[in-house]
Every structure is written in C-alpha cells, then in structure tokens.
Nucleic acid binder design. Sequence first.
DNA 1: TAGATTGTTAATCGATTAACAATC
DNA 2: TAGATTGTTAATCGATTAACAATC
Lengths: 220, 220
Amino acid sequence: MGNSPKDNAQNIVKISRPTLRRLPLYYQYLKREQALGREFISCTSIAEGMGLTSIQVRKDLQVTGAVGKPKVGYHIGAAITSIEESLGYNNTKDALLVGAGHLGLALLGYEGFADYGLNIVAAFDKDPAKIGTQYRGKNVLDIAKFPDLAKRLNVQIGIITVPSAQAMDVCNLMIESGIRAIWNFAPVHLVVPEDVIIQNENMAASLSILSQELLKVKQK
Amino acid sequence: MGNSPKDNAQNIVKISRPTLRRLPLYYQYLKREQALGREFISCTSIAEGMGLTSIQVRKDLQVTGAVGKPKVGYHIGAAITSIEESLGYNNTKDALLVGAGHLGLALLGYEGFADYGLNIVAAFDKDPAKIGTQYRGKNVLDIAKFPDLAKRLNVQIGIITVPSAQAMDVCNLMIESGIRAIWNFAPVHLVVPEDVIIQNENMAASLSILSQELLKVKQK
DNA sequence: TAGATTGTTAATCGATTAACAATC
DNA sequence: TAGATTGTTAATCGATTAACAATC
C-alpha cells in the first residue's frame, strides 16, 4: 500500500536545525497563498516566492511528511497541516513572561503566537507601577507570584525580557518554579542544568549579519 | 616578521554565516569578563563559559584576526577590538525605524545597540496619536517625512516593526528613499531588488526550535 | 626545561545541490 | 500519450571536529 520506511518513525523524526528555521517561513507563506484562494502549489512556485531552490523546498517539506502529486504539486491545506503537526503548533503550550517593558509587552500582545501554539498566560514584573496593570486583556503580576502560578498551572515555558543584569536571577527563579524551556531575549549567556532548554533570541547576531553584508557591498 | 598570508586580505575576509552569528556572543562574553577585571583568557575557558568547543572558539576568533599566546591565551581587550573591527562596530551606522508600537519602541529605546554600532535616529508612524511623541529622547515622526529625512541624512538602514499587512508598503517606501539594508521584524517575506539587503528577524523560527526541543524531551 | 595553549592541516560530518527515475 | 513535477539516490560543498606541530 505504498508504505515508506518513514511511516513507523512517526513523530520521532529529527528535523535539522536549518530546516527547523525554514519551516515556519513555509508555514507563513503557505497560509498566505491559501488565503488568496489557491489550493495546490508546486515547490518551484514556493521556491520562487521565498527565494529558495525548489529542491530545498521539496526536501524540507518531505521531513514534515507532506506529500505532493507529480504535475499538480502540494495540496496547500495538507502541507500546512503537516507543518503544524511536526512543529507542534496544534497543541497549544502555555508560557509565562517576566519583564513587562516594551519588548515584553510587544510579545505579550502579539496575537500571531497563537498560530504557533504559544499562549502567553501573563507577564510578571517587580515594578509596582506595572503590577496590576493589563495589556490586551493580559495581566501584569507581581514577580513574587511567579513560582506559585507556574507550579499551579504546570507551565513549561518561560520568556525572559528583563535587562541583562537581572536575567540570570529570573532564569534561576524560573527553573526553581518548574520551567523546562526558556526563551531568552536578554543578551547574556545563561547557565542552566542539562535538562533545561535555552533558546536565545539573539538580535545582535542578526544585526551583525546585516552590517556585514552592508560592509561587503560597500567594498565592491 | 611573522606575516601571515591573511595580512594583505585585511577587511575582505569572508566570515561564514554560523561564525557571524557567534561573534556577537563572544563579544558580549569577553566584555563581561573584561568588566570582571580579567586580562587574558584561554579559548578553553571561553568555550566552557559559552557552551562551545575550544576548537570552535579558536577558529572563530581566528577569522577576526585575534592572536593568542600559547600558555597565556588571548588578550581580552585585543580580542574585543578584533571583533569590533571585523563586524564594523566601531563605525556607527544610522538607522530609521518605522512602526512605533511596543516592539518598535523597545528597539528605539534599547541602549545596547550603540555597542554594535547602530544608532536609531528616529521612529516613524502613521498614527496621529503617536506622531510628535518622544521616547527616551527620540522622536516619533510622521511617516510622510520618511523619504525626505532618509535622503537628507543619507541613511542606509531601515527597521520595519509594523504589522505584516503594512510591511511590504513600508519596505517599498524605504527602498524609494534610498535605504539599502532592511531589518525586518514583520513575519512576511519581502520582495526586494537584488542590491537591497534583507535581514529577517524571525521569532517564529526560534520559537519552533524551542518547542521542537521540548517535544523531543517529552518523548524520552 | 616541561607543559599548556595556540595555530594549522587533515578527517569527519551534515546540509545543500545535482541527477534521474517514478508517477500522475 | 507526453510532459511536468515529485521523490530518492548520489555528488558536492562547507562547517565542525580531530590531530598534531609550533611556541611561549
């Protein structure tokens, strides 16, 4: 019945880092094409629209389990579902955010995260002026309440948007409160136990790539 | 006089993408060690502190032109300077930002960018309620004034922090105004001419990596 | 001097690209 | 059917890791 050796591997498929970075982009792109009323799309077309090669698109979609038809291409809806499943977008995960500054509020209020299965439950801060306020229907709570709430809701994801100097303290607090994965926006290296996952959002890195490219162009 | 074949290559050294992403992290780390009063550091020590291998650290520092002494390690100050030079942190670049929402203001007010040679001159928005306001001494101006100011100051870098739906329009406006490099925070694929550099800050990608790791751990 | 640590060349690993067969 | 497009296997490219010689 046309079974591939992948069928029994199911969810356990390891997705490479570069592919993992591109999948959300496909997702965004396909969603947009779908909104335009399109039903099928070839990987050549995706590649052109996204500035990649068609082979890469095929390889990437393959790891999600998406299947296309020769001469027709991929069913957009099915491809979207495949990506959603392999990235876990469909089972929503709760998160708590610490640091209700502008960046924190930007993340707290960003509705787009729902698409990626992320629900930021509330924000925390130590500033009395911020505690008790709301932003887009979400509360800014006293940081002292963090451990209690995290444990009660069994939240696994923490988001750090405090200044660098406080990031390590917040990180420790999170770990003590049972947080297993930390999305860190402070430009510091956080030291964590083996079993805690850290994902650094490193804006300085992107910036470096940008200025490097700009430098290269100027030298020509 | 111990000249290496790299000496005449000077600034033209191509730095690989992965290295380019790590260099700012070394920079941050070394700055912190320097602040602690340390003068020399071995790559083993850097590697341990940052969760990398010592060989990788040596290779990375090498492309910046940093030179170490056997048994002593790298002079921290000199290594910092090397990174600064190869990433262009020392010649400050002006940038204009469009979209004075929370994310935009977070970037506008972030003092850390100065370290990376980026100076956000002003923000722009179309919302009359925001136009004319200030944040940390920087003005929020009418988007209508963008082309004029960009041309007059000969600004090369534009930062997009508007909602996805408006990003492409803003992008076009920037290009018409002479912007050559765009740092895009909207989760859309922007189509630009060959000679315009786009750097997408793709939060969804980082988020995907985080949830994927979390998924993997759970399955064990 | 002896030993630690850098610098450099070689080997491995993984991701991208190319080629081509399978198929609707 | 013929041709476009997928799926898959092989070849290339580049980055990481390993090994070792150079040197303070």
